[in-house]
Write a protein that binds this DNA or RNA. Structure first.
Length: 323
DNA sequence: CATCAGGGCCCTG
DNA sequence: CAGGGCCCTGAT
């Protein structure tokens, strides 16, 4: 595996729209643990690719909920161009939705007597993706039809073989390979990493991305339905993977259309304190309350319960998530 | 030891 | 558009 040490740094500030919740935005409790980022209260690390170059990022909270300010330190080797700094800033703002206008959503949240305490606790949280489309696609594919432990195994096997290790700020952070990296890699090589039938998805997707068949920037600008149609064309992308990508990469807030069986069980407990409510009913009820912010609203409640899980024992949840 | 479902998707009929 | 098959793993 390739390792690079990044010693030089350049810093700049970003002022997210207000209100802003730093930890809720940069750390998602519901996500599986990976080697791609690190977090502790008020601080966050990851790698970011701009063009073909990799940089290390440290992001620190320097503001308050109502007066947001974050400091970004970019780690690099040799030199860095002003244009690259600009692109990094643009990407961070997009991926973490730092310019979001959530006034309307927050107004809806205030009217929800039942879950208002949760919305208030996470006020200013954004739905975010640390990764670009290709990278999140890889993660989404190893999530498919697998439990958390298996997903982590597959991801680590892929990173150990094709990833890049960055050393900066006394951290070791991994980055996902470029699509082109898998060009000479056979399906069997990938299968040897015990990723099963996902090998053919990853192989095909990598080829499509390497050949620039997917335009991420354009996808970001499309409306939800059109973006969804485009994503579903990708090999290995079905309704659930499209939902993840639409929500996290495209910041479409109203993607609460597909509910997987395991999610249905958790939603039933969260919203009704019952073991199994029909998926259609869950969907209708949420859409009635939150309209075009359906997925965002669910995201707040979802992240909150996984956050609480760190400190308290939530028996019904432990039973459902199956590590 | 065997069998099976799982944090989906593709392909076929 | 319904249903079988796919990879591997841990649970039973």
């Amino acid at each position: 595996m390739k390792t690079s040490v990044l010693k030089n740094t350049k810093e700049f500030l970003i002022f997210p729209s207000s209100p802003f919740h730093f930890d809720g935005t940069f750390h998602k409790s519901s996500h599986f643990l990976d080697k791609l980022s690190d977090w502790k209260t008020g601080k966050y690390w990851q790698a970011i690719r701009i063009g073909k170059r990799l940089f290390g990022l440290k992001v620190e909270n320097k503001g308050e909920i109502q007066k947001p300010k974050i400091k970004v330190s970019v780690f690099y080797d040799k030199n860095i161009f002003e244009k690259e700094i600009e692109n990094i800033k643009y990407e961070i703002i997009w991926r973490f939705d730092l310019n979001a206008n959530l006034k309307e959503f927050n107004k809806l949240a205030k009217q929800d007597r039942r879950f208002y305490p949760i919305f208030k606790k996470w006020l200013g949280m954004r739905n975010s993706s640390a990764h670009n489309l290709y990278e999140l696609l890889i993660i989404a594919v190893v999530l498919q039809n697998a439990t958390v432990r298996r997903t982590v195994q597959m991801m680590n096997a892929l990173l150990d073989n094709y990833g890049i290790k960055l050393k900066f700020d006394n951290k070791e952070i991994f980055a996902i390979w470029l699509p082109n990296r898998l060009k000479g890699v056979s399906k069997q090589n990938l299968r040897d990493l015990k990723i099963g039938y996902r090998a053919k998805f990853i192989k095909q997707l990598s080829q499509d991305f390497a050949e620039n068949k997917v335009d991420e920037q354009k996808l970001r600008s499309l409306d939800q339905e059109k973006a969804k149609q485009e994503l579903l064309k990708l090999y290995g992308v079905g309704p659930e993977t499209a939902r993840i990508l639409l929500f996290e990469v495209c910041h479409q807030y109203n993607t609460f259309d597909h509910i997987a069986p395991w999610q249905q069980k958790i939603y039933s407990q969260l919203f009704y304190k019952k073991s199994l409510i029909p998926a259609e009913k869950i969907k209708d009820d949420i859409k009635k309350l939150y309209g075009k912010y359906s997925m965002l609203a669910v995201h707040y409640i979802w992240e909150d319960v996984f956050w609480r899980r760190k400190n308290e024992k939530i028996d019904w949840l432990e039973k459902e998530i199956r590590l």
